[in-house]
Design a protein around this nucleic acid. Structure first.
Lengths: 186, 186
DNA sequence: TTACTTTTTTACCATAGGTTAAATTTTTCC
DNA sequence: GGAAAAATTTAACCTATGGTAAAAAAGTAA
């Protein structure tokens, strides 16, 4: 759903890791693993080398609400926790076997000190992320659930092979029954 | 709705403007003025020294949909245009007499070269903005319109003195008639 | 295959919010 | 103040989506 490639080249990152002795760590997670849970502080950015991750949270009744789907080259974190130190409410679930590179805040700062233009890149990345979120709010305010579903199908067809319809439904902001009804009516 | 104060101190900005000869410009707009329109490229960040601004866009039927309300010390821009150079779709309307400081991308870059920690600040500001947008999507997905209205009343009571109910309704994602009905049922 | 579990669909009714139109209240301006 | 315009409320009706429950389909494992 979002690629960080224009802002952070993973090959360069690997090179810088050696050059500046950053000590970045890797993490492999199996399909189905929930590698970040509500209440666990999120101390890293996660660069998804390869795989597919669903970010969700729980509503008051305990239902999982999908907040985001993330594929190769996405950089994800729980901003509430990572940036502001607030209690983390997000779950990160690997929807398939996934390879991650973990980047702590201090490692990122060190890296940016050595490569100042990366600071600009990260700033732009955050700005683009805010834009994507703005667009999503706009689509909620101007489109029907059916239109949002058709857009998603068109823009991310692979998503429907990797995620359950119930997970996609909550991402679209509707129940799985409503999504099923929308699909029936084509 | 959002203050940039933790990330950019306006007094320092004024000082830096002189110190580094940035050439920042000011702009005064009268109540009711629409100082950015759809199709006009947005070349600046706007620092709101004093005033109140509504950001809106038009849906397919031409209805104004309020995207954001912004008060003193907010930094606003049309990210689609400012960051990505895409066609601007946002309108910026002064809801009361408003004093702005304009910051171009090149001025910002110059400033960050002189004050590197400001780059980090801007990055965090963008991250916080993404968080606020995430929270808004979450509230749409987990709360009723009535709950969102009550939250808004509680968190931004002054907003209801400055904005029309129809403008607040579209911000909440409902029609003005629905908002009226919600208010009647207390 | 069969049995079992999970996911998806279907159906029925309930409800929040949309649509249209008109009435009412508030604001603006002469 | 009073007329006109704008904003807000009210009402009747309509529609999309939610809630519940059950059936059907798909996936999994022995």
């Amino acid at each position: 759903m979002f690629s960080s490639k224009p802002y952070l080249d993973i090959n360069k990152l690997v090179k810088w890791n050696l050059e500046f002795d950053l000590g970045l760590t890797n993490k492999s997670v199996k399909k189905g693993d929930v590698f970040l849970k509500e209440g666990q502080p999120c101390k890293h950015l996660y660069y998804i080398l390869k795989g597919f991750v669903r970010i969700y949270y729980l509503d008051l009744e305990g239902n999982q609400i999908t907040h985001w789907f993330c594929a190769d080259d996405a950089i994800i974190t729980s901003p509430f926790s990572y940036v502001k130190g607030e209690r983390n409410i997000l779950y990160f679930e690997a929807m398939e076997d996934t390879e991650l590179v973990l980047i702590s805040a201090s490692q990122l700062n060190t890296l940016i000190q050595h490569v100042p233009e990366l600071g600009e890149g990260m700033r732009q990345m955050n700005a683009e992320f805010a834009m994507i979120l703005s667009r999503r709010i706009m689509s909620i305010h101007t489109q029907t659930a059916e239109e949002r579903y058709l857009n998603l199908m068109e823009q991310h067809p692979l998503l429907f092979q990797k995620a359950k319809l119930s997970q996609i439904a909550s991402f679209l902001g509707i129940t799985q029954q409503s999504l099923s009804r929308i699909r029936k009516n084509l």
